[in-house]
Design a protein around this nucleic acid. Structure first.
Lengths: 112, 112
DNA sequence: TCCCTATAGGTAGGGTCCCTACGTATTGGA
DNA sequence: TCCAATACGTAGGGACCCTACCTATAGGGA
């Protein structure tokens, strides 16, 4: 996974991870790693600032708690975040179609 | 097309455009616009610096000419550029699969 | 007991890269 | 005569992800 390739696509991934229920930041990072078979193992210096950004934007809402002696900040999608996620999925579909068309080198979707 | 979404994917698109034969910069920009149905209409401030970057990296080779009173810089893929294009296509396939898996919200590839 | 790992959060600074805004020049049509 | 299209270019900025580092607790192994 090239580093800069992710730019502009991270927010949607984080929102999608929170779609099925609230999670704390570290769990979001692990969930992304798991759902991608370990291919998207983001550093914490990427995940936490991104979550802060989403919260400032009103797409997620965070709240502190303490579990097992460790403090956690649990995030959940706001209504606005849910709409943004839907938009991110649409944009991704279009983006992927455009890039695949321009990149060529075989039909898209890949026939595998 | 969100602006920052393209980051890290542009080089492959430019290389792909040059795959079927040499072209000058302005023609590359137009070809990209045409093959994507106008959805990827890059500003010249994006295309020219990117071509310069690719040439510095040895992936394309440019040469000046004059056609119809206008000077042109025509680019062609180098062997290294051809290999890089193949790599870019592989990376894109993996990247798209990873993002699609993490973004969810329906099967991938899109059923259209 | 000590240390290391996993868990859980955080920030500062940097680098990449695409875009905006501008500039130069020629050709050709309105 | 003027404007659009063609054709090239650069400077500066902003967005954003990563590297590197920091704090803290729980728990297992030596």
């Amino acid at each position: 996974m090239r580093a800069e390739a992710l730019k502009g696509h991270l927010d949607g991934l984080l929102l999608a991870t929170l779609e099925d229920g609230p999670q704390h930041g570290y769990a979001v990072k692990e969930a992304l790693r798991d759902t991608t078979g370990g291919r998207l193992d983001l550093p914490t210096g990427t995940v936490y600032p991104a979550l802060h950004r989403l919260e400032r934007a009103g797409l997620i809402k965070g709240s502190w708690s303490v579990v097992g002696g460790r403090r956690r900040r649990t995030y959940e999608l706001t209504e606005q975040g849910r709409r943004s996620l839907a938009g991110a999925r649409d944009h991704w579909q279009e983006f992927a179609a455009v890039i695949s068309a321009a990149l060529g080198g075989g039909p898209w979707p890949a026939t595998n």
